[in-house]
Amino acid sequence: MTELLTVEDLRVALPVQGQMRTVIHQASFAIGPGEALGLIGESGSGKSMTARAVGRLLPAGAQVSGQIMFDGEPVLELAGAALRRYRTTDVAMIFQDPRAHINPVRTIGDFLTEGLRSTLGMRRRDADRKAVSLLAEVGVEDGERRLRQYPHQLSGGLLQRVMIASALVANPRLLLADEPTTALDVTTQSEVMGILDRLRRDHGVAMLFITHDLELATAVCDRISVLYAGTVVESQDAESLHAAPRHPYTAALLASRPSLTVRARRLPVIGGRPLAAFEAPEGCAFTERCRWASPVCEEGRPAPETHDHGQVNCHRTTELGILGSEAVVTEPVIAEPDKSSVQSRGQQP
């Protein structure tokens, strides 16, 4: 095994109003050293919780099963000092909203160097110097002055660069990036994403990149896993996933993005609504929205099937093979506004 991180059959349930709700049903994927894996999914699909499970940041009371191995170490069994060392030097998380995720009453310098000083025992001056050089790497000039400033004195884009610098400051081997640009202005999104992508490659750090943006994931990731209702339904190399999707959900996602060349009156949508893991039926969770659904789809969860470029979890994959995105675009759903909801079965009353 040469993988840095392997996640196998991860299952997570969280207590919601006294009941255990499954948020991740079955997630399996692997990331090699220096490799970037994109984890794609809609809101509620469990992608954020997957990243938190890897970082051991699940809320209290969460039930976790399955296996997460980091460099041969079972992550779920870490505790105490070993867990702190894992969090300090092995993985680092970049959160979605830097404004909320950086303590507003402590200085930028404190935020950047706290880990170095408190867990790695670095002296203040050395830690400051390291922080300034990392700030320069993420394109923040006059780092000395920035160290003394407070978060509210920095713009959102600048703060997210500080967040990226803070993630890299302890030289981790894996970055967990949870929609790192979603909370930013559109104009600064690509800038921050560019910095993150470049630094990750420069430092040779692997990355689990959580996003709902398929296009963005394709641009910065080597491989992509697609999450639906808490289950990884397809994993492929980024290029081939884009060109040759095998799961109907992936194909539908690809079809529903605006094309640069064809002017559409109305973008195709996937009928129905996305399901959360806890409400998924016995069979394939995508059945009720799938245009290729047949009775076989309702008979148990599909097992992963391996092919040249990756894996896919679909009962009918051998019959369907590679799904051209054109096939989906020709759906009549496009023209008639209400038809999508009428067609989909199992619509909630």
């Binding site: 959160f95 909320a100 950086i102 507003p104 880990g115």
Partner: peptide, 26 residues
């Protein structure tokens, strides 16, 4: 329950330090 406390935990800061420097302080 604040997000910045989660950040501190994700950076491996010991619980005592998180309580003193982030939770109590704020």
């Amino acid at each position: 329950g604040r997000e910045h406390v989660e950040t501190a935990r994700s950076r491996g800061i010991p619980r005592r330090k998180i309580l003193r420097r982030h939770v109590l302080r704020n």
